[in-house]
Amino acid sequence: MQKKITLVLPLCIFLLTACSDDAEQGPTGPRPVLITMTEVVSGTTEELEVTVGRIESKAEPLVAAEIDGRITHIDAEIGDVVVAGDRLAQIDPEDYRLSHQSAQADVDRLTAMIKQQQRLVNRYLQLREDEFFAENTLDAASSELDVLKKQKSSAISRLNQAKRNLSRANVTAPLTGEISDRLVNLGDYVKRGNPLFRISTDEYLRIVLPYPEKPADRLKTGLTVRLESATAMGTRVERKVTEIRPTIGDFSHAVDIIIDMPNPGNWRAGGTINGELVMNVIENAVLIPETSVVLRPAGHVVYVLNETLDSVEERPVETGVLTRELLEIRSGLQAGEKVAVDGAGFLTSGAVVSVQQR
């Protein structure tokens, strides 16, 4: 009796193990790869060249002395905001005041002499009508009057020049801005043309954007540029290229494009600026997410889903312009097809997939 029980027990264990293996095997075939998908779209995209440039003040005059003399007053310091016409410094005006007084005295003296000579000429004219006066005496008096008038005209010119020199003793701001540099000290003797102050204004700006040599032949005035200053992030301004510098920088090996513009807000000269240059606008471009494109040894490929959305086909493509969100596909895809996005890097041609909602 004990021998029969011993034989039955191993048989039961074998049958239970076989049933367990069949239950774990389940359906046959490869496990599907989880992916997300998107539909290929057609739209307009732009070929952009992105760079970081600088902001310059378009108007940054160097204020120089217009007369010779010693600096007696300084009224502006670096960082001061000045209005056009404000006095920045004064050059000793005493010599120019004396010259002005002398020139004024000459004009007054000649004016009196002309009045006296005119009365003499008028008297001679009256005597000539009465035939009691020699003609040559009248001619001499008239000539003397003409000489005096010309001398007065010259004296008036000297007076005006003296007046201008006296006014130039006050060095004034030519425009509204900020003193960026002071190049003179109290007591310095300056000559005409010596620089005294530098004024910077942010009212009108010059944007300088460097671009590499490669697209240099395609650069031209009138292209659209989108600008964003680091001092006003989130505010984008669209302008046109004003100028292209004809030479390539010695150190940067870049081509500079110039945009002249009024200050749109809180932009400051000397700051940096982000620039997007629109090189080309592409109509009816085929567009997909950049993550849908996988680099294989044979080149760039995408994985296109079949109609039942349960398997993919590997398809080589030619890529084009990359924007912030989408990549242009120049060949290999058509609008309306569905391609894998997330998980595309794990696929091969013919792979079984399971599409998940993004």
Rank of each mutant, 00 (worst) to 15 (best):
S153N: 09
P316Q: 07
L309W: 08
M37Q: 09
R31T: 09
D68L: 10
L327D: 00
R97F: 06
T6V: 14
Q356K: 15
S200R: 02
M233Q: 00
E290Q: 09
M37S: 06
A59E: 14
L326M: 06
Q334M: 03
R218Y: 14
S102W: 03
D139I: 04
K163C: 08
N263R: 09
I5H: 12
G85A: 11
E178D: 00
I55C: 03
V304T: 11
A65T: 00
N165L: 05
K214V: 15
G249Y: 08
G271N: 06
F197I: 01
S42F: 06
P30S: 08
I78E: 15
L48G: 09
T235F: 00
N194W: 12
P297T: 01
Q334E: 09
G187W: 01
I156E: 12
T51Q: 06
Q101E: 14
I114F: 11
V208R: 06
P289Y: 02
V255W: 05
I282K: 01
Y211D: 10
Y211R: 12
T242C: 02
F133M: 13
V317P: 01
T221C: 01
I244T: 06
V190Y: 05
A18Q: 12
N263S: 07
E283C: 05
I199T: 08
A269Q: 04
G270W: 02
I248L: 08
R245Q: 08
Q356D: 14
S20N: 10
G43R: 03
H300E: 15
G350Q: 00
G85N: 05
R128N: 06
G336A: 00
L34V: 00
L223R: 13
L9Y: 13
